[in-house]
Amino acid sequence: MHEFHIVVCMKVVPKAEEIRVDPESLLLDRENARSEINPPDMNAIEHALRIKDQCRARVSILSMGPPLFESILRVGLAMGADDFYLLSDRAFAGADTLATTYTLARGIDKIGDVDLVICGEESADGATGQVPAGIAEWLGWPQVTLATEFQLSDDYTVCTARREIPGGYEVHRVKLPAVFSVKTASNEPRFMDFDRKPWAMEEAGVIVWSRSDIEVEDDLIGLKGSPTIVSGLEQAETRARQQHMLEGDPESIAAQLAEILAPFHTRN
C-alpha cells in the first residue's frame, strides 16, 4: 500500500533582532546573526507529526538554502521527521517568491508520491506568506492556507481542514494531493525526541539536491528566475521603545492619545 507522505517546507532565518543593514553596501548582514528555524515552520512540522502520530505516514522536510541550513534543520528530524531534502546550489541563490516556489515545487515533484505539503504561514524574514500559494500553483494542486486542524478521510484521499480567518473560521474539504499553510501559533511544537536525537543530528543522511538533480529550467531559478529586485534597503528604527511622555491636562492628554490610537481602529 502507498505510504501516506507529508512534505513540510521549512527554512532557516536569522534572529530578527540581530539583522543589520550594512550602511555602505545596503545589504543585509546575516553573517553575524544567530539563526533559528523559521518559527511558523515549527507549527507546520508539528501539524505534520500529529498526523503521523495518528496514522502511518512519512514526514519529509524540504528546504532550499545553503549547506548551513543542514545542521539547524536536523532539529526537525529529531522532532520526528523521517527524511530531509535540501535543495542547495549557488544557482538557487537570490530567489524571490516566484523562483523559490518554482524550485520547491520541482523538489516536490522529484520526491514524488507526495500527498500533503505543509508550510508555515509566512517566513519571519520575508513575511510574504505567498510561498504556499505559489507552490500549489506550480504543482496545480488545491491549497488551504491558515489551517489550524487537519482531518484525513479513511482512505487518505481527502483532507478536511479548519482554517482561521479574521474573526472566525472556515472548514474546507479538498482532494489530495494539496498544499496547506498553517496558522502561526496554532499548536505547541513538540520538543526533540532525545532517543532520535543522536541519529537525527549525526547519522541521518540528508539528501542534498543541486540544480542538476531536480529538473529545473535555468531561467526560472535563483536570481535569474526572480522578477523582483531590491532597489533600496534601510534599517527600520530599532525595537527600542520611544518612551515619549505625554504632558498636559487630562483633556489635552486624551486628545493626544486619541490621535495616537486612531490608526489602530480595527472596526468601522
Binding site: 536569522p14 530578527a16 533582532e17 539583522i19 543593514v21 543585509l28 519571519a124 524574514d125 523582483t228 529586485i229 531590491v230 532597489s231 533600496g232 534597503l233 534601510e234 534599517q235 527600520a236 530599532t238 525595537r239
Partner: peptide, 9 residues
C-alpha cells in the same frame, strides 16, 4: 524581520 528592515522592491 519583524519590521527591523525596510526594503524597496
Amino acid at each position: 524581520f519583524g519590521g527591523g528592515v525596510i526594503a524597496l522592491l
